[in-house]
Amino acid sequence: MDFGPYLFLAFLEGTVTAAVLALTAVGLSLVFGVMRIVNVAHGEFFMLGAVFAWWCTSLISGYPALGFLAALIVAPLLVGAIAMVSERLILKRLNYNPEGTIVATIALLYIIQQLALIGYGPDARPVEAPITFRIVFPWFGYAGYKLVVVAAAAALLLATWFVLTRTRLGLLMRATQYDRETALAFAIPVDRVYAIVFAVGAMLAAVAAVLIVPIQQAHYLMGNDPLLLSFIVVIIGGLGSIKGTVVAAIVIGMSDGIISVFMTPTLAKIIATLLVAMVLVWRPQGLFGQTAR
């Protein structure tokens, strides 16, 4: 294949990566922004979404599209419920102490991951795509489903943005994010807002996983990479800024495909982790973020 078509393919793949990454990272960013906590278990909510999706589609076998649609609704709801329960039982008890919650979510990471290993097993299992048509370009054919993923992710991101900016719930979230004490003084149910935000953050990761699982297969360790990438995106995009997160997700998702042309994934990861560390040391507000209030 020539370089042109190759680049086009990398572009397409990059768009898919970016779309899914944006969804996952926005979930993490939302939780950090509103609750000021770092959720290390975020990748496990992603993994759970994929595992539940496999479970749904295998229950409704024979109708891939139907099973997938069911997964698209059931998996995020289940994950959201799990997240909400852990928020009530654990994070609330820790009073959202930033350092304590990191350790607690690390514990949660191990618990969810190992329970998945017990319940689901160590194998990677595929999920059939709901649609199978291929788009034929002059140089190569491309799975139409991947473009559906991009469209769905974009729609979900728009919906999130709409909720945040145009609804009462969004207003409550933003008020809580801006100043918790004042929000409490204005009788905003901060407690409930936190529970909802944590659940919604996990659901965004779960839905991203449902979308990607027909391409990637479900596996109990699949949460590690999305966690790392979301971290990178959220930190570079400016902690807690949704807009910055989406922009960073697109930049990093797109470059992921292109970078892999030039270096091994391991080297790319090394550079990315070091970059994140350096950003946190020298520009804690993120590369594109504004200075803190």
């Binding site: 770092v38 971290f231 990861k269 560390a277």
Partner: peptide, 22 residues
């Protein structure tokens, strides 16, 4: 890394260790 504190310190140490592992 001692330029950071609290949560940032935790993440930065984690990232450097991850880079070391990789």
């Amino acid at each position: 890394i001692l330029r950071t504190a609290g949560v940032a310190f935790m993440i930065v140490t984690m990232m450097f260790a991850q880079a070391g592992y990789l």
